[in-house]
Design a protein around this nucleic acid. Structure first.
Length: 513
RNA sequence: GCGCCCGUAGCUCAGUGGAAGAGCGGCGGCCUUCUAAGCCGUUGGUCGGAGGUUCGAAUCCUCCCGGGCGCACCA
């Protein structure tokens, strides 16, 4: 079910205004849905069923009464009652034309009721090696959420947090040093060809590794706005601990997180006097709360145990738990010819993000990674990866953009473009416009659920609508007669919405294919 | 044992209170046309199982079965 009644009353688009007008008549908010079956109208509402308790009358009777009244609206061509009390509606060509006329680059944008400064922390893999496929999903998902939030009107910063000190980084540096001396890597050290590559460069390998990571992310179209070093955060640990609810026991300093929703208390300072990683978490969350209205973590399912303790930290600092969001995505499983492949950076048995991009390309990879919900685990068969890429629906969607680009290359400068049709709309034209008008609600739902998968799913349906229209009708005058100005407006709007869908998931919109 | 996530078409998955869907695969058609990376037809489901709430459940609640991931004074 889709609600067309929420959002800023100042920027209601055509469909929302229709729902509002229907709501006036019904006396309660009206939600419109797009029925799958043609026989159920252009739009349908269950308002008579939803209000059955208030009316204390049979829903069909209420629906019949509404049907008689809503046909008075200029937008409504026909209204029918169906099933237990659904109200099916057919809209006029004029209504669809008005909706089409409203589509521009800002269509569906800027609906955030209170724009916020939002930090999305994503990837944050330690620079002990190149990014792996595991980070690919984190990046594709987190970046899509960031793009959606920005489109909604928020001020979004993508932050990458990395460890630049500590045991793991020491081991990494020692592994490179050992290679330079021609020795075996230390126990539990890092191996792999990339260690040898780093050994050829001078000085600390960490900055080199970071630059390589940044290049991989840029290639994957994830722009990082802020790089946060752990050593900077660690300097704030003492202040951070001072603001927490703590106690000493067994020579260690504990945070009383169990009083704030966590299932147990957590050690901040070990009996050895060393702060734990959790102490850095506390300092970092404090840092985030000071700088942003909302801080979003993007974490793999293997970190879901962190949710309660991070929220507990925020609560101890007196912040609303809503200001901290932890988005969990299920892990990526690798297979090769059906066999599970275990990945480990230390074992050298890894598939890098760059390998995936080399194999299938950025567009196919990002589409594949974001096309399913974050709660759904995901399998990548390395043997089938390139084959799957050729069959990736992303090309079906991009092809819409390329076809429209081809038409506009043939259009003369200053050609007449008019969203008002010169003749009654063809079925394919009506279907395409209705699909376009759904877009704002698709985005709104994707944002509120923090689930970008609705965008690619919608884009495929929109592409369906376009390809059918394209197949059935000719746009340009030589073959299309006086329909050209309207059809140019229609495909122009389609190009705008398709390009937006692709942009929101970090995929290019090509003019030629 | 406890916690989180998942179970929908042959395969990969959308859909989270309103009238069961897509892609791929299978089968059969359509290029003298602004791009056939396209279009059309067809094949395909006890929505893991059992109860419950509701006018209405794939969707919410309880239990069971199956799978993934977690339960550190590691990072």
């Amino acid at each position: 079910m889709r609600s067309y009644l929420r959002g800023s009353p100042l920027a209601l688009h055509r469909l929302e205004r229709l729902a509002a007008a229907l709501g006036e008549i019904a006396g309660s908010p009206v939600t419109l849905t797009r029925p799958n079956e043609e026989a159920h109208g252009d739009y349908a509402t269950n308002v008579a069923l939803a209000t059955v308790k208030e009316h204390k009358r049979p829903p069909r009777e209420v629906a019949e009464e509404l049907a008689a009244r809503v046909v008075e609206l200029p937008e409504i061509a026909r209204a029918e009652v169906a099933g237990p009390g659904f109200l099916n509606l057919w809209v006029t060509d004029a209504f669809l034309s008005e909706g089409l006329a409203e589509i521009d680059d800002a269509f569906g944008a800027g609906f955030a009721e209170t724009p916020e400064r939002v930090q999305v922390e994503l990837v944050s893999a330690n620079p002990t090696g190149p990014l792996t496929i595991g980070s690919a999903r984190n990046g594709a998902y987190g970046d899509a959420v960031a793009r959606l939030l920005r489109f909604a009107g928020h001020d979004v910063t993508r932050e990458y947090y990395f460890n630049d000190s500590g045991g793991q980084m020491d081991k990494f540096r020692e592994s490179v040093e050992a290679w330079r001396r021609g020795e075996e890597p230390p126990a539990d050290g890092y191996v792999g060809a990339y260690i040898g590559d780093l050994a050829k460069l001078d000085g600390d390998p960490v900055p080199h590794m970071l630059r390589e990571i940044e290049e991989s992310l840029e290639r994957f179209r994830i722009p990082i706005d802020s790089w946060q070093r752990q050593t900077v955060i660690e300097n704030e640990i003492a202040d951070a601990i001072a603001g927490l609810d703590t106690y000493e026991e067994d020579g260690a300093l504990w945070a009383r997180t169990s009083a704030y929703g966590d299932d147990k208390d957590r050690v901040l300072v070990r009996s050895t006097g060393e702060p734990t990683y959790f102490a850095a978490d506390a300092a970092y969350i404090r840092h985030k709360l000071n700088g942003y209205d909302r801080a979003i973590y993007v974490l793999g399912a293997d970190h879901h145990g962190y949710v309660a303790r991070l929220k507990a930290l925020a609560a101890m600092y007196g912040a609303s738990p809503d200001r901290i969001e932890i988005l969990i995505y299920q892990l990526v499983h690798l297979t090769r010819g059906g066999e599970t492949v275990r990945m480990g950076k230390r074992s050298g048995n890894v598939v890098f993000l760059d390998d995936l991009v080399d194999e299938v390309g950025v567009d196919a990879a990002r589409w594949y990674l974001v096309n399913r919900g974050p709660d759904q685990s995901l399998e990548i068969d390395l043997d089938l990866a390139s084959e799957k890429s050729a069959k990736n629906p992303v090309y079906y969607v991009q092809y819409v953009h390329a076809r429209i680009g081809g038409i506009f290359r043939e259009v003369a400068e200053g050609a007449d473009i008019n969203p008002v049709p010169a003749q009654p709309l063809a079925p394919e034209e009506r279907e395409l416009i209705k699909r376009l008008l759904e877009f704002p609600d698709i985005v709104r739902e994707a944002v509120s659920k923090r689930g970008p998968q609705g965008v690619p799913v919608y884009a495929i349906r929109l592409a369906d609508g376009f390809h059918r229209f394209y197949h059935e009708h000719t746009v340009l005058t030589a073959k299309g007669g006086d329909a050209e100005p309207f059809r140019l407006a229609l495909i122009g709007a389609t190009r705008t919405v398709i390009a937006r869908c692709l942009d929101l998931v970090g995929v290019l919109a090509p003019d030629r294919m």
